[in-house]
């Protein structure tokens, strides 16, 4: 079991870069509301949120350095989430 003790040490630099990226993204997602995007406003906000969660999961939550199967599990969860949302909206799409 000795190899399991092995921990990947992430340099501070990486954390700082990610932090700055997250801050920039946060400010841009606020900033973008001043542009009139019409029906794409929500989409824009969601895209920023997706990128930010991706960064947090990958770096802060160490998915990048973990075993592959953990990444597969997380991916699976998001895929399931997506499917459930799509099915729900199928109902709305066809409502008369």
């Amino acid at each position: 079991m000795s190899e399991e003790k092995h921990q990947h040490v992430v340099p501070y630099r990486v954390y700082v870069i990610i932090l700055i990226a997250l801050l920039i993204l946060t400010f841009s997602s606020v900033g973008i509301t001043s542009i009139e995007l019409g029906e794409y406003t929500v989409a824009a906000a969601l895209i920023f949120a997706v990128i930010k969660s991706f960064l947090v999961l990958t770096y802060f939550m160490h998915l990048k350095y973990d075993k592959l199967y953990i990444r597969v599990m997380v991916g699976f969860v998001f895929a399931l989430f997506l499917v459930v949302i799509i099915i729900t909206f199928l109902d709305y799409l066809f409502r008369t």
Binding site: V83, I87, L90, F94
Partner: peptide
Amino acid sequence: AFVGYLVWGHHMYTAGMSGPAQYY
């Protein structure tokens, strides 16, 4: 465990869902 996530609408057939959702 997996397919169980995708069938919830069978509790709502008479609630006013759209037709295609009901078939699905």
